[in-house]
Design a protein around this nucleic acid. Structure first.
Lengths: 295, 295
DNA sequence: CCCCATTATAAATTATTTTTATAGTCGCTG
DNA sequence: CAGCGACTATAAAAATAATTTATAATGGGG
């Protein structure tokens, strides 16, 4: 079977139009007709029904079933391409969420530089949720990810190396600024400045708001710690971040949370279980482990 | 790309000999040479090195990486074939471990028969561990599985419907037969007759022996409850089974375990998350749910 | 040195896919 | 209701791709 046929089929399921699929792939329309016929012969089943009455394309149960597998076959092959490209170029793509990039990466970078390995590393920045997908899709080979619970995905191997509590940051001008510790429930009336949705902070934050039965007033979401801190300093709102971002700013105060069973920010080294690490990637992994794991 | 090439490659990685692979597929040797060259061109990387000196075939890092994905592509396609065959024949293959087949299935079968659906169901018998693989590989569409912990596999959906403690069964002639309850540690000196390894009972049993620091004297392993019970009745050994197998035999006594945090035998309805259920399979699922879930 | 077991290469053959050209279906519209 | 437009199907020809046949190349061992 030709994987091209699966690619045609995959698009057909989505576009529901033979001619459009043909266009997208730069082939003629009968090519798609023939491809589908080949698949129908191969699997001995009708995959799509041409319902001319309601002029739409109906995907049969078999078609839906094949679509599921076609997609993962194509995904698997794309992954193979990505990984082998990185492999032959002896390049390592390391995914880093901004908080981790700021706090943990400098030590790692120093260690890598000493061994002359920093040049072979490309970093990829994004929220932990987004990076987890990038890792799965082969855009990254290794990643340092944040999470609120230990990462347990069959396709990924995660090695936790740190665990930090979340803190509340308020402007020095804020009435709460003189407090050292606070219960989350005391923040019901506050305005919040938070990370945008692809960050795990939200998972933890949502857990706490749910547990304390309130709908937080989120006035702004940003992608960058500094941006958030600047807004907090200006008293636009308060924020919810890990202690490690503490920049010792005189205009922002950090408060610890007093709640029981608080969520924590776990940091892990993560890579695909299906990924064959190059010697260089293996070395990067070792350096990450030795640099980050606190004894 | 042709999946045939991946199949050739997959075998080549294992056999490490072009001619043998050609033989297995009933093609000539240059076919394999060409297939590998096509893949090497496609992925722009050497996949195997022909080391004539030590006359063996060396798989490169890229080759190993591709092998991982090739295998899962082929597996995915085989699965698609299986599932679509079941789909078009409107057949449901239901996996049942023998204990569940004996205890839970009769009620289900009655319910299915009433709706005239029993004929479209083929059952597949085996230990829970074996059946889980059969389910993954598409040999079964649905299964009732036993486990000691909730089943959590990304590729499978499991709905727990019952939870039973494990019991000890001894011959009526056995000194322990007059007891009603017992600690597992009291069985250190006993001989055991158990299920063979593909049953979850062993997971639970091993947990208890490890926790109580002893190496059990397992005199026999069988695949069938009746066989085990007969051996127990003959005082060949004692056994470790769920209470539900209780056949109210006068020659065998059942003892409850007094240990804290005992493992339990969980029964779940399981199916592949990637599987598109036919209306018939959907119905079977509903019947399984309503029949098995105790309110 | 020749033979054996391997894998590679090239040309011929065979198989498969794609294109070109055209037909069929159905709904819509004047 | 004829004709047009938006679809998909079919058949023959053309273009590609895979496989075979025949033979070469490589290196080890008798």
């Amino acid at each position: 079977m030709n994987t091209k046929d699966l690619a045609y089929f995959d698009r057909l399921i989505k576009l529901k139009n033979f001619s459009q699929v043909a266009n997208e792939f730069g082939v003629t329309q009968p090519t798609i007709t023939m491809a589908i016929q080949r698949l129908e012969a191969e699997f001995q089943a009708k995959l799509v029904l041409r319902d001319r009455v309601h002029h739409e394309l109906v995907v049969t149960a078999s078609g839906r079933q094949l679509a599921v597998h076609a997609e993962s076959v194509l995904q698997e092959l794309a992954l193979a391409h990505q990984e082998i490209t990185h492999l032959t170029q002896d390049q390592t793509v390391l995914g880093l969420p901004p908080i981790i990039e700021n706090y943990y990466f400098p030590q790692v970078a120093a260690s890598l530089q000493k061994r002359g390995m920093l040049a072979d590393i490309r970093t990829l920045t994004g929220g932990s949720v987004w990076l987890r997908n990038a890792l799965r899709d082969g855009q990254a080979d290794l990643a340092l990810l944040g999470s609120t619970a230990p990462l347990a995905y069959k396709s990924l191997i995660a090695e936790e190396f740190d665990r930090q509590p979340f803190n509340i940051f308020v402007s020095a001008a804020h009435p709460l600024a003189k407090r050292k510790r606070i219960y989350f429930s005391e923040l019901k009336q506050e305005k919040f400045v938070l990370f945008n949705h692809s960050f795990v902070h939200n998972t933890a934050f949502n857990l706490l708001t749910r547990r304390n039965h309130f709908r937080p007033d989120v006035v702004f979401r940003a992608t960058d710690t500094h941006a958030i801190m600047n807004l907090v300093a200006e008293n636009v709102g308060v924020t919810f971040l890990t202690g490690i971002v503490d920049q010792h700013r005189p205009d922002v105060a950090r408060l610890e949370l007093l709640d029981d069973e608080q969520p924590a920010f776990l940091s892990s080294i993560v890579y695909r279980s299906s990924h064959v690490l190059t010697p260089a990637q293996q070395q990067v992994l070792t350096i990450l482990r030795t640099t980050l794991t606190r004894s």
